[in-house]
């Protein structure tokens, strides 16, 4: 599959109550968007990982992944987070998604303070608010492509089952896999699997899409096609935040945030 595949479907009708935000910041400044207008806000966030002791059962080892990060992302932005391996990029994505909890500081996404939510509440919130695309696709191996796309809707009980199937078919068609819905992941190529993953991420029409090296496991041509899909989603109003170590792909975003040693070392803001 090469080239862009046409317009993605618009936001589903039951998401109409969600506020529509402009795709770009009209001021065009490079500074951070005011925190009060941010759809994603990290304030003074620290994250320390503790692992089991060494060979001889010693004390726990600590590694500081984030050393105090402040980040605000406005609705509709497309942000690339870059940095060397181990810099804390994935940690930021995980904190935004509520997958990890900060050791200090606060994380606010779409108006919700994630540090105050239980795991159950986070799971439900994620289903409706966040779409995640992983580097290694992480499709459910026992479900077909269509069933993988249907799964988030099943979990969130969005609409009637028949409607979920129809929506899944539309999402798959939007990523160019309309005729592959009945295939298991093992029967799909890497690029096709990632397309399914993107369709799955958008199944419930979330306002925010996160990607952790979403094209990291794809060759250049397919990676660009994939990025094109993300761009389309952003142009339709979805806030897209993705991690990449590929500077070329990072450059395609409207804003680049650089991370090093657990700190934000650069932030291009928004490009005009």
């Amino acid at each position: 599959m090469s080239g862009r595949t046409g317009a993605l479907p618009g936001r589903p009708e039951w998401s109409a109550s969600q506020p529509r935000v402009p795709a770009r910041n009209e001021s065009g400044t490079a500074t951070r968007t005011a925190a009060t207008a941010a759809v994603i806000g990290l304030a003074g966030v620290q994250k320390t990982y503790r692992s089991a002791g060494g060979r001889r059962g010693g004390r726990e080892a600590e590694s500081r992944a984030l050393n105090g990060v402040d980040l605000a992302i406005a609705a509709g932005e497309m942000v690339a987070i870059t940095g060397p391996s181990g810099s804390g990029k994935t940690t930021i994505i995980n904190l935004i998604a509520g997958i990890d909890r900060p050791s200090a500081g606060t994380v606010t996404v779409n108006g919700s303070r994630l540090d105050r939510m239980t795991e159950e509440q986070l799971a439900v919130w994620r289903g409706r608010t966040i779409g995640i695309v992983f580097q290694f696709f992480q499709l459910m191996p026992t479900l077909t492509a269509a069933e993988n796309v249907t799964l988030p809707m099943d979990l969130a009980r969005l609409g009637a089952p028949r409607d979920r199937k129809a929506r899944a078919a539309r999402h798959l068609a939007a990523v160019g896999l309309g005729d592959r819905g009945g295939r298991l992941p093992l029967e799909l190529s890497g690029g096709e699997q990632q397309r399914v993953a993107i369709a799955r991420a958008m199944a419930c029409g979330p306002p925010i899409l996160l990607g952790d090296e979403p094209t990291g496991n794809l060759d250049t041509g397919i990676a660009r096609d994939m990025f094109g899909l993300l761009k389309d989603l952003n142009e339709n109003g979805t806030t897209v935040v993705y991690v990449t170590h590929d500077q070329a792909l990072a450059g395609l975003a409207s804003r680049i945030v650089s991370v090093r040693d657990g700190l934000i070392t650069g932030d291009t803001g928004q490009r005009p």
Binding site: F136, F137, Q138, P141, T142, L143, T144, E147, T150, L151, D154, L155, P161, R162, K165, G182, L184, P185, L186, E187, Q193, N217
Partner: peptide, 29 residues
């Protein structure tokens, strides 16, 4: 990595695409 080998066999594909396990009667989980 990322795949479990499920789907390589005919039984896997049959279970995924036919009968009770392919319809709406069962939830995803």
């Amino acid at each position: 990595q990322g795949t479990s080998g499920y789907g390589a066999g005919r039984l896997d594909r049959l279970a995924a695409r036919s009968g009770l396990l392919s319809g709406n009667r069962l939830s995803g989980s």
